[in-house]
């Protein structure tokens, strides 16, 4: 394996870590944040018939998780191509 190849792999890995960390921040905020830690504060806000904190805990977090994974898949496919490591 040449050095330039290793460098390329290293920058691919760094970009990957950055993306994953970003996604995990959102993951943490909607579930642990909105659904657990801040639930009482958010419950003072209404979303139709739902209290907002309750809605995040039972619905919103799940929708966000889904969107996150598909966003991650899309971004990773772009990274794979950019660094020419796709399978």
């Amino acid at each position: 394996m040449s050095n330039s190849n290793n460098d390329n792999h290293d920058s691919y890995w760094r970009a990957n870590i950055k993306l994953v960390l970003m996604c995990l921040v959102v993951w943490f905020v909607v579930s642990f944040g909105f659904g657990v830690l801040l639930v009482d504060q958010l419950n003072t806000i209404r979303l139709g018939g739902f209290k907002l904190g309750f809605w995040f805990a039972q619905q919103g977090s799940i929708y966000t998780f889904l969107a996150l994974i598909f966003f991650y898949v899309h971004q990773m496919n772009k990274l794979d191509k950019k660094y020419n490591v796709h399978d």
């Binding site: 994953v20 996604c23 995990l24 993951w27 579930s31 659904g35 657990v36 639930v39 309750f54 805990a57 039972q58 977090s61 799940i62 998780f65 996150l68 994974i69 991650y72 898949v73 990773m76």
Partner: peptide
């Protein structure tokens, strides 16, 4: 509301799986 942890826990695990383990 207390049961929300099962909903979040059993779906949020897939985010970890998709990004940290499966590939």
């Amino acid at each position: 509301y207390d049961a929300s942890v099962y909903l979040m826990g059993w779906t949020g695990g897939y985010v970890l799986l998709a990004m940290l383990l499966a590939p």
